[in-house]
């Protein structure tokens, strides 16, 4: 029983990371109607940006984090404006293929700049805090807390600001948004800013939980997509539920199956949801 609770806790940590990635995927899908295959590698890039700020330059972490997030957002907008923007009139699957290529480009850049080996933010082993028989690392609190803050921030943005409402309106009905006078290109840029910030945060948290590696983001992309789809792709709030479902399932599954096959769990849930409830488990809007 303790073991199960322990795994659920790990699942919440992993779920928080996946959620942040899935929110970006979901937002981009809602606005631009394509599956952003470079999102995992955008997470990786964000994690390495924080490495530069925190380790290379020596900024305090609370500063390195937003700087890295801003840089990742900048890269996301840059990619959109130089490549994706020119493909918007094409079939969305062309954008998907372009994003797949962009994933490899980002991954290579990370390898060229920072090398192919593992890196860490802080060396040494962090001793877990014991609560009864449960073990929790201090970082886990930061990860879950940080994700919570970001999700609440996103919620406020989407429901309280004009741009946030325009974003939801455009995801809902592009033509009507345009008719209402919404500058859709501006909304697209904001979408990338948010997706970039969320991806960077997810990458940084993932690196805190494990370590930095050029393929870290690509490896978790399947889980991120699974979370977005389970939550109903295009619905950022669903991504939270989806992230938790995927994160907890992956961790708890290690009780029954070889931990190496965590990815298979995401895959199984993903396929099951796609077949039985393509609109996601949270609600039904197409």
């Amino acid at each position: 029983m303790i073991e199960l609770i322990q795994l659920v806790l790990y699942g919440v940590v992993l779920g928080s990371i996946i959620t942040l990635g899935a929110i970006g995927v979901s937002l981009v899908f809602g606005i631009l109607r394509f599956a952003h295959f470079a999102h995992g590698d955008m997470m990786t890039l964000g994690a390495y940006f924080a490495f530069v700020g925190y380790v290379t330059i020596g900024l305090p972490f609370w500063l390195a984090f937003p700087v890295a997030a801003a840089a990742a957002a900048g890269v996301a907008v840059l990619i959109d404006q130089t490549i994706y923007k020119r493909l918007r009139r094409s079939d969305p699957v062309i954008l998907l293929i372009s994003a797949f290529g962009m994933a490899l480009i980002l991954r290579s850049l990370v390898q060229i700049i920072w090398g192919p080996s593992n890196l860490v933010y802080a060396s040494g082993i962090q001793l877990p805090i014991r609560i009864g028989d449960l073990r929790i690392k201090e970082d886990h609190f930061y990860i879950v807390g940080g994700a919570l803050v970001l999700v609440i921030g996103l919620h406020l943005f989407l429901t309280r600001t004009t741009m946030g409402k325009a974003m939801r309106a455009m995801a809902d009905n592009v033509d009507l948004a345009r008719i209402s006078g919404v500058n859709t290109e501006k909304v697209v840029i904001w979408t990338w800013v948010i997706a970039g910030v969320m991806a960077a945060a997810a990458g940084i948290f993932l690196a805190m939980d494990t370590r930095l590696h050029p393929v870290m983001g690509w490896r978790i992309l399947l889980s991120v997509f699974a979370a977005a789809i389970v939550g109903g792709i295009g619905r950022p709030y669903g991504a939270i539920a989806g992230g938790m479902v995927i994160g907890i399932s992956e961790e708890v599954s290690t009780l029954f199956i070889n931990p190496s096959y965590k990815a298979a769990v995401s895959f199984a849930i993903l396929v099951a949801v796609l077949i039985y409830k393509p609109t996601g488990i949270v609600g039904a809007r197409r």
């Binding site: 599956a35 969305p92 699957v93 998907l96 399947l222 997509f225 699974a226 789809i229 993903l270 396929v271």
Partner: peptide
Amino acid sequence: SDYLAIASIG
């Protein structure tokens, strides 16, 4: 097609 692409990474 996009869902199939995601499934195929899996």
